[in-house]
Protein backbone atom coordinates (compact mmCIF):
# COMPACT_ATOMS: atom_id res chain seq x y z
CA UNK A 1 0.00 0.00 0.00
CA UNK A 2 1.32 3.40 -0.93
CA UNK A 3 1.48 6.05 1.77
CA UNK A 4 -0.65 9.08 1.28
CA UNK A 5 0.98 12.28 2.44
CA UNK A 6 -1.12 14.90 4.14
CA UNK A 7 0.22 18.38 3.67
CA UNK A 8 -0.68 20.39 6.75
CA UNK A 9 0.37 23.66 5.15
CA UNK A 10 -2.43 23.29 2.62
CA UNK A 11 -4.89 22.29 5.34
CA UNK A 12 -3.98 25.52 7.15
CA UNK A 13 -4.31 27.57 3.97
CA UNK A 14 -7.77 26.14 3.31
CA UNK A 15 -8.79 26.83 6.91
CA UNK A 16 -7.75 30.48 6.55
CA UNK A 17 -9.62 30.79 3.24
CA UNK A 18 -12.80 29.51 4.85
CA UNK A 19 -12.48 31.57 8.03
CA UNK A 20 -11.95 34.98 6.47
CA UNK A 21 -14.45 34.68 3.63
CA UNK A 22 -16.63 36.39 6.22
CA UNK A 23 -14.90 39.57 7.45
CA UNK A 24 -15.55 38.95 11.16
CA UNK A 25 -13.40 41.96 12.09
CA UNK A 26 -15.93 44.23 10.32
CA UNK A 27 -18.83 42.94 12.44
CA UNK A 28 -21.37 45.74 12.94
CA UNK A 29 -19.52 48.00 10.50
CA UNK A 30 -21.89 49.88 8.17
CA UNK A 31 -19.42 51.87 6.07
CA UNK A 32 -20.37 52.04 2.40
CA UNK A 33 -17.98 52.28 -0.51
CA UNK A 34 -19.24 52.93 -4.07
CA UNK A 35 -22.78 51.96 -3.20
CA UNK A 36 -21.99 48.62 -1.55
CA UNK A 37 -21.12 47.84 2.08
CA UNK A 38 -17.40 47.68 2.81
CA UNK A 39 -17.73 44.13 4.15
CA UNK A 40 -19.18 43.03 0.81
CA UNK A 41 -16.15 44.42 -1.04
CA UNK A 42 -13.91 42.42 1.30
CA UNK A 43 -15.88 39.29 0.52
CA UNK A 44 -15.70 39.87 -3.24
CA UNK A 45 -11.93 40.44 -3.05
CA UNK A 46 -11.43 37.42 -0.82
CA UNK A 47 -13.29 35.16 -3.22
CA UNK A 48 -11.01 36.37 -6.01
CA UNK A 49 -8.00 35.53 -3.86
CA UNK A 50 -9.52 32.13 -3.08
CA UNK A 51 -9.82 31.35 -6.77
CA UNK A 52 -6.13 32.24 -7.29
CA UNK A 53 -5.02 30.08 -4.34
CA UNK A 54 -7.18 27.19 -5.56
CA UNK A 55 -5.56 27.51 -8.95
CA UNK A 56 -2.11 27.31 -7.34
CA UNK A 57 -3.26 24.24 -5.42
CA UNK A 58 -4.28 22.49 -8.63
CA UNK A 59 -0.90 23.34 -10.17
CA UNK A 60 1.37 22.32 -7.31
CA UNK A 61 -0.40 20.10 -4.79
CA UNK A 62 -3.30 18.32 -6.51
CA UNK A 63 -3.54 14.63 -5.45
CA UNK A 64 -2.15 15.54 -2.02
CA UNK A 65 -3.89 13.52 0.65
CA UNK A 66 -5.65 11.36 -1.93
CA UNK A 67 -3.26 9.56 -4.26
CA UNK A 68 -0.14 7.88 -2.83
CA UNK A 69 3.38 9.12 -3.58
CA UNK A 70 4.74 5.81 -4.85
CA UNK A 71 3.61 6.01 -8.43
Amino acid sequence: MTRVRIDYRWVAVFAILVTFAVPWFLWGDSRVFAGLPLWLWWHIGWMGLTAVVFHLFTRTAWDRGIVGEGR
Binding site: F14, L17, A21, V22, P37, L40, I66
Partner: peptide, 26 residues
Protein backbone atom coordinates in the same frame (compact mmCIF):
# COMPACT_ATOMS: atom_id res chain seq x y z
CA UNK B 1 -30.41 42.06 4.74
CA UNK B 2 -27.68 41.11 2.26
CA UNK B 3 -25.50 39.01 4.61
CA UNK B 4 -26.95 35.94 2.91
CA UNK B 5 -24.35 36.68 0.20
CA UNK B 6 -21.67 35.79 2.74
CA UNK B 7 -23.41 32.58 3.77
CA UNK B 8 -23.69 31.46 0.16
CA UNK B 9 -20.15 32.65 -0.61
CA UNK B 10 -18.50 30.71 2.22
CA UNK B 11 -20.68 27.72 1.68
CA UNK B 12 -20.66 27.50 -2.10
CA UNK B 13 -17.51 29.29 -3.10
CA UNK B 14 -15.07 27.99 -0.51
CA UNK B 15 -16.38 25.07 1.58
CA UNK B 16 -18.10 23.32 -1.29
CA UNK B 17 -15.04 23.81 -3.51
CA UNK B 18 -12.91 22.11 -0.86
CA UNK B 19 -15.44 19.27 -0.66
CA UNK B 20 -15.31 19.16 -4.44
CA UNK B 21 -11.70 18.02 -3.96
CA UNK B 22 -12.03 15.98 -0.75
CA UNK B 23 -15.20 14.11 -1.72
CA UNK B 24 -15.54 14.78 -5.44
CA UNK B 25 -12.04 14.04 -6.71
CA UNK B 26 -11.76 10.98 -4.48
Amino acid sequence: GPEWILVMGVMDGVLFAILWYVVGYK
